[in-house]
């Protein structure tokens, strides 16, 4: 029986020791559900907000936009919602779960064409990037594989799909295109040199791929990439929600977003 005593006491003791440090506060704070890609700028904006305002009971919930949307649909107590693409906000609005949408997006993003062909071959590619159109780069014979997000499920892939369609290259490039299951995987393929070219967000390039050469995709080839923001039906009457919401859309926070590579959401 010594074993049982040891096992049960250790099992009961461990959580009790940790309990006090985990115990949660009674006040219900303002909860901001935001796309995980917005984490760093939002945390920085929150630091700035704390210095300027007395309101300190703000919490963030970071995940993929789809998961965040589902949480709100199932009654999750969220006050402000900032997904990575307008479709998520619109779907919730149709269900009457959004009280107010921001007059302008929280942030915007751009699409970049990235090449992993650096080093020996890179010199050729760098010169290839220079003075040549996106079309010519994509059709270059040295390019064997191009990674884009799966257009059926991944927003960054949907924008890439638009670009290829407007350039009328989609059928020609089919054999070279590799689909990734999310935006991170696109980045990962490029980071690991598994592919020659890829289409990624400017923010991802700045955070994770800044060692690689890029070419900006002309903005008229895809619909604007915008991160919308809204107050949920629950956040409607709650004190402090509007104040933080307005702060998120203020020039001060826009400056922080710009520093992380997000374009002006105007």
């Amino acid at each position: 029986m010594r074993f049982w005593r040891l096992l049960t006491t250790s099992l009961f003791l461990l959580p009790l020791l940790l309990m006090q440090s985990v115990g949660h506060s009674r006040q219900s704070p303002i909860l901001v559900s935001a796309a995980i890609s917005l984490r760093r700028p939002l945390m920085e904006i929150y630091q700035l907000y704390k210095q300027q305002s007395k309101e300190r009971h703000i919490q963030f919930n970071f995940a993929s936009s789809g998961a965040l949307k589902m949480q709100i649909e199932h009654g999750g107590a969220v006050d402000i919602f900032a997904p990575a693409s307008p479709q998520y906000l619109d779907l919730l609005e149709k269900k009457g779960l959004i009280h107010l949408k921001g007059k302008r997006p929280l942030a915007a993003n751009r699409l970049l064409l990235i090449s992993t062909l650096v080093g020996d071959r890179g010199k050729k590619i760098a010169s290839m990037f220079k003075g040549r159109s996106v079309q010519e780069i994509l059709l270059d014979k040295r390019v064997k594989r191009i990674v884009v997000g799966d257009p059926r499920t991944v927003p960054v892939g949907q924008y890439a799909h638009q670009v290829f369609k407007r350039l009328k290259l989609w059928p020609q490039l089919q054999d070279k295109i590799v689909f990734a299951n999310n935006a991170r995987q696109v980045v990962e393929y490029l980071r690991r040199n598994e592919v020659d070219l890829g289409l990624v967000y400017a923010t991802d390039w700045q955070r994770l791929l800044s060692h690689l050469p890029y070419r900006e995709i002309s903005a008229d080839l895809y619909t604007p990439i915008e991160y919308p923001i809204g107050v949920t039906a629950r956040g409607k009457r709650r004190g402090g929600v509007d104040h933080f919401f307005n702060f998120l859309l203020s020039p001060a926070s826009r400056q922080i977003f710009n520093r992380y590579g997000f374009a002006d959401g105007v």
Binding site: H24, M43, Q59, N61, A63, Q71
Partner: peptide, 11 residues
Amino acid sequence: TLMVAGNIPGK
């Protein structure tokens, strides 16, 4: 866990 508990820093 991500779905039901959320990813709330410090909570």
